[in-house]
Design a binder for these strands. Structure first.
Length: 427
DNA sequence: AAGTCGGGGAG
DNA sequence: CTCCCAGACTT
């Protein structure tokens, strides 16, 4: 019979061999020089992979340089104060990564004498190390034939093998891991996994992939079917739920002049253990009544009226007193701040306020709720607070610009504080 | 399986 | 605007 069919059909093994050969040849030529590629120190690889979770290479590079300078070894990281680690993570997001990384470093010091174990199960058991990161460390640092399937790899393999599974589903990652494991070229696991990601980052991009410069385009099933643009298939994420919040810059007076009141967040949950400006959640049933900047009939933003701002300020003072025993005196509406997390959308109105005798008093009476639209009526005293040396509730502190070197703030509040003090962001 | 956890760059 | 990034953890 004619050999046309036999010559054009390739077995899975032949396709995999082609894919690995061409991809590695391409990678050897175009691979980027990145700071975590100067050697294969498992600790350096580990730190880079944690930082790179859901974070672009260009964003990570400066953080990585500073982090490795301050914490050059597993021991250095394990011994450091947690606040120091968080400070070096400031602005990078997903802050549990930093705390888990340090916890993992302490595990390595205690259980493995400071040496990252050349063992997949041991690495995978480290805090903050999931299937992807375990595979990345094992393959890149130790050249072990483990798959490292991230978003790039799922996209590349979905297109090349025309996989129509929904990559948003956890089961799909498991399936693609099996495929990825099966096509690792002998002896080149680390380069292959990095090449796969490099291709996804530089060529096989989410939108308008550069098929004409792709080293494996010739046998890409997605491309051959003219479907590369519709792959991978991924269901849409739910939009973040809106939350309206009232924040405040409380300016200190007397011995605290020039400082601002901040507080540390709880040990768990959103922005755990980070510092922030005080703020309160506007109850859902009060949103309509209190919300400013709502959309008018024409869909345009309407500025809050003086009365509305005063009402918001009154609500802020009352809630801060109820929740923290803090007595503040709102002075004026300062600014609005929008911040979007993956699951929450904050609409924040930020006020300026002072504390006439920088008082906090957990048992004092609530500020008067006269319903008045007038600002500046919330500083009722009950005579029980300590005149000049007012103590703050647990977790609260006065800080000036110089303290910004030691406390870690999420970007939202970092920017507000920098704006308040007229400081420029870091370069 | 679905929700929680940041922030920013690209189109 | 939308998408998604070298994902992990909790429920």
């Amino acid at each position: 019979m004619s050999s046309i069919d036999q010559q054009q059909e390739m077995t899975q093994a032949e396709t995999a061999a082609f894919f690995g050969r061409e991809l590695l040849g391409w990678y050897d030529v175009v691979k980027r020089k990145l700071p975590w590629r100067i050697n294969r120190d498992p600790y350096r690889v580990w730190v880079s992979e944690i930082m790179l979770q859901q974070t672009r290479v260009d964003t990570v590079i400066p953080y990585y340089e500073r982090f490795m300078q301050r914490f050059p070894t597993v021991q250095a990281l394990a011994e450091a104060p947690e606040e120091d680690v968080l400070k070096h993570w400031e602005g990078l997001g997903y802050y549990s990564r930093a705390r888990n990384l340090q916890a993992g470093a302490r595990e390595v010091v205690e259980r493995y004498r400071g040496i990252v174990p050349d063992d997949a199960a041991s690495v995978a058991s480290l805090k903050g190390v999931g299937p992807y990161t375990a595979g990345a460390i094992m393959s890149i640092a130790f050249n072990r034939p483990e798959p490292a399937v991230d978003g790039n790899v799922m996209r590349v393999l979905s297109r090349f093998w025309l996989l129509e599974d929904d990559i948003a589903k956890p089961a799909t990652r498991v399936k693609i891991e099996k495929l990825a494991r099966s096509i690792i070229p002998e002896g080149r696991a680390g380069d292959f996994n990095q090449a796969l990601m490099e291709l996804g980052a530089l060529v096989c991009t989410p939108k308008s992939p550069g098929c004409l410069t792709c080293p494996v385009m010739e046998h890409c099933a997605g491309r051959l079917a003219g479907r590369e643009a519709e792959l991978p298939i991924k269901t849409k994420a739910k939009p973040p739920r809106p939350e309206w919040r009232l924040g405040v810059v409380v300016e200190g007076s007397g011995e605290h002049a020039g400082r601002v009141l901040v507080r540390q967040r709880p040990d768990t949950g959103l922005l755990a253990r980070m510092w922030e400006l005080p703020h309160v959640l506007v109850p859902k049933d009060a949103e309509k009544r209190l919300r400013s900047g709502s959309k008018g009939a024409g869909g345009k933003e309407e500025a809050a009226s003086e009365q509305e701002q005063a009402s918001l300020a009154d609500q802020l003072a009352r809630m801060l007193h109820e929740e923290a025993g803090l007595l503040i005196r709102p002075l004026r509406h300062w600014t609005k701040a929008e911040h979007v997390f993956s699951h929450i959308h904050w609409h924040m109105d930020v006020f300026e306020a002072d504390m006439p005798s920088h008082v906090s008093e957990a048992s004092s009476a609530a500020p008067s709720d006269s319903g008045s639209a007038e600002l500046g009526l919330v500083a009722e005293t009950n005579g029980s607070y300590a005149g000049g040396g007012g103590e703050l509730p647990a977790g609260y502190a006065w800080i000036g610009p110089e303290a910004m070197d030691t406390l870690a703030f999420p970007n939202l509040f970092l920017k507000l504080l920098q704006q308040h003090w007229g400081i420029k962001g870091r370069g």
